[in-house]
Design a protein around this nucleic acid. Structure first.
Lengths: 200, 200
DNA sequence: TTTTTAAGGAACTGATTGGTTCCTAAATGG
DNA sequence: CCATTTAGGAACCAATCAGTTCCTTAAAAA
């Protein structure tokens, strides 16, 4: 779907750009709340082009979701592999989520959370997609925690449970941020969660 | 609107029952995902009766939300005021949320979270309603934490931050539960969160 | 019984929904 | 230059949407 077969008129728009534009529309209005005219306006494409490129509305959401998840995972992975102590790296990644859960960004919320809350109960494929995202973030933190435990920075304990706990805290911040919280309050939540790594 | 003025034909259905029926519909399908026919089927009422009693779809959602929040707050308040140690009471209330975030109940999720995620960014009144719910749960936990600190059960520390932390953990569980988690995993999250009260 | 009030239901509105199907224009490979 | 293939857009589809209006029916108060 991505590579041009070489024959016939080539696509005049970028699939990734279109998916990203659609992502922003779904992000702001959810799935049911997004109409085809919304997507047309957001991408600047026509109905025909959109359907030819992505199939239908649901498949377009999946493409947008994959883009969103890949970028989110990359951002967290980058922060967790930063030089310095492991705890500093973990805190930095949590502070990013705190920032994303505050003020305007917080009000906008997280696309994965929005789709999980809106659609997971009715759409097993989307539920699995969201669960996969949560698991992957968890594994990123598992890696950091294991490193921290190895060098004595982080208390012993089930690394899966500790990582899952951080993921839970992150998703909680994203929900609380929907009603517009101050970043200072979110940072306090991060500091509370960091204590878990001290003593477990 | 609740009390019958005494003149004219009295209402043949119970407002609370109708609001509760509507609550279940919104709960399962969200706001945008709920159509008027859905509400008619769910309540067993007609369009005319529904609009005469509640005004419009949004006001019906508010009535349903108020019912949901009142019951949720009462359940948590009850568990927190149970005899025994304060920590046992807090744990019991968190275990209730863990149960509500597991398996089928988890997949169904929380109406307040659903509405907050779907509508808060676009509807300030609903955002405030959800924020109010989060604040009230937080204050319930503040009361318990202060009691626990007074008798030495719970570590010293900012009771508002500690309570907010628990609320954040609760909302996180409800998000994770949307993709269908095991209750044992949720209980492990509760135990992790309880550690916060030990040492802060 | 009469008057007053509102419940309940049916019919209808204009707008919009997601989705399909054309047709024309254009860019490629041969 | 020509044949092939697809992009892009316009017109159109049946279905459904939230919401309104009107009318009949029924219950209470006087």
């Amino acid at each position: 779907m991505t590579a041009h077969p070489g024959l016939g008129r080539p696509r005049e728009f970028d699939l990734d750009v279109a998916a990203r534009d659609a992502m922003n529309v779904f992000w702001d209005h959810g799935y049911e709340g997004t109409s085809l005219p919304d997507l047309i306006e957001g991408t600047g494409l026509s109905r025909g082009s959109l359907y030819k490129a992505f199939g239908d509305k649901k498949k377009l959401l999946l493409a947008a979701l994959d883009l969103y998840m890949a970028e989110g995972l990359r951002a967290t992975a980058d922060l967790l592999s930063q030089p310095g102590t492991v705890k500093e790296a973990i805190r930095a990644s949590l502070l990013r989520y705190a920032h994303l859960s505050s003020d305007e960004a917080g009000r906008r919320g997280c696309l994965v959370v929005a789709i999980a809350v809106e659609m997971a109960a009715h759409d097993p494929a989307l539920a699995e997609r969201a669960a996969q995202m949560f698991r992957r973030i968890q594994q990123l933190y598992v890696g950091a925690i294991v490193r921290g435990q190895a060098n004595g920075e982080i208390a012993e304990g089930d690394e899966q449970v500790m990582a899952r706990f951080l993921v839970c805290q992150i998703q909680g911040m994203r929900v609380l941020g929907k009603t517009g919280g101050l970043e200072a309050d979110m940072v306090a939540l991060v500091d509370s969660a960091m204590l878990m790594l001290e003593r477990n």
